[in-house]
C-alpha cells in the first residue's frame, strides 16, 4: 500500500501542488472578505437601531440555518444568472458570505466581552464613543477573537473543498479527477486528506504566532 501511495503522490504531484495554490487562494480571498462582512454585521447586531439588528439577525439566521453546499449552489446559480463570474469568484463569495455570519458572531461576542469599565474609563478621559471603540475596545476584542477566528479559518479552509462542485480545481476536485483516472480512490483521498492536514497544521502555527505577537503583555508576563 505504501508503494501505491507514493505512486499516487508522484503521479499527481504537480496537479496537487497547483490545486493547493487554488485552495489557498480560495481560503485567503473568502476569509478576508468574511472578516469585513463579519465586522460590519457585528456592528449592525450591536447597534441600537432595530432595523440594523433585524438585518444582522436575518443574515446570520439564514446562513447558519442552511447547509453550505445549498448556499453555494444557490448563490452560484443565482449570481451567475445576473453577472458573469468565474466559478472561482462565485465560490469565494459564497464561502465569504457563509463564514461571515460566524465571524460576525465571534466579533459580537468578543466586543461584548470587554469590560464596560474600559469604555467608561475611555469616555471619562474625553474620548468619543467612536474613539473609545477604535482605540480601546476593538484592539482588545481582536485579540480575544484570534482563537475562535483561527478555528473559523480552519473550518473555512476545509469548507473550500465544497467549491469542487462548482468545477474549481482545488485539492478535493483534483482528488476526484485523479481517483477517477488512476482507479486508486483510497490512496488518492488519503493524499488529499494529508494535503489538508498539513495546511491546517501550518495555519495553526501561524495563528499561534499571531496571537503571541498581538499580546505583548502576556508575552512579557510569561
Amino acid at each position: 500500500m505504501l508503494s501505491s501511495l507514493s505512486q499516487v503522490v508522484d503521479m499527481h504531484f504537480f496537479a496537487f501542488l497547483r490545486a493547493t495554490g487554488v485552495t489557498l487562494q480560495l481560503t485567503a480571498v473568502s476569509l478576508a472578505l468574511a472578516v469585513v462582512i463579519g465586522l460590519a454585521f457585528a456592528f449592525l447586531k450591536l447597534s441600537r437601531n432595530p432595523i440594523a439588528n433585524l438585518l444582522a439577525n436575518a443574515y446570520i439566521g439564514v446562513v447558519r440555518g442552511t447547509p453550505l453546499i445549498v448556499l453555494l449552489m444557490f448563490l452560484y446559480f443565482g449570481i451567475s444568472s445576473i453577472v458573469v463570474l468565474t466559478s472561482f469568484w462565485a465560490g469565494s463569495f459564497a464561502l465569504a458570505i457563509h463564514a461571515g455570519a460566524y465571524v460576525a458572531e465571534i466579533f459580537r461576542g468578543t466586543i461584548q466581552s470587554i469590560d464596560h469599565g474600559q469604555h467608561e474609563a475611555a469616555r471619562s478621559l474625553g474620548m468619543s464613543r467612536r474613539l473609545s471603540m477604535r482605540l480601546i475596545i476593538l484592539p482588545q476584542a481582536f485579540r480575544r477573537a484570534i482563537p475562535p477566528l483561527g478555528n473559523q479559518f480552519i473550518i473555512g479552509l476545509k469548507d473550500s473543498s465544497l467549491v469542487a462542485f462548482l468545477g474549481v480545481s482545488e485539492i478535493y476536485s483534483t482528488a476526484m479527477t485523479a481517483a477517477a483516472a488512476n482507479f486508486r480512490p483510497f490512496e488518492t483521498y488519503l493524499v488529499a486528506g494529508l494535503y489538508y492536514l498539513v495546511l491546517v497544521l501550518i495555519f495553526t502555527v501561524l495563528v499561534n504566532r499571531l496571537e503571541l505577537k498581538l499580546t505583548p503583555d502576556r508575552r512579557a508576563a510569561a
Binding site: 469599565g117 474609563a121 469616555r123 471619562s124 474620548m127 485579540r143
Partner: peptide
C-alpha cells in the same frame, strides 16, 4: 459631553487601565 469630561479626571475602584497598552 466629551469636552466636558476632558476637564474632569476620574479614577475608578477597579482601575480600568487599558491592558493592551503599556
Amino acid at each position: 459631553l466629551d469636552k466636558v469630561r476632558e476637564r474632569m479626571g476620574m479614577v475608578f475602584q477597579h482601575f480600568y487601565l487599558f491592558p493592551h497598552k503599556n
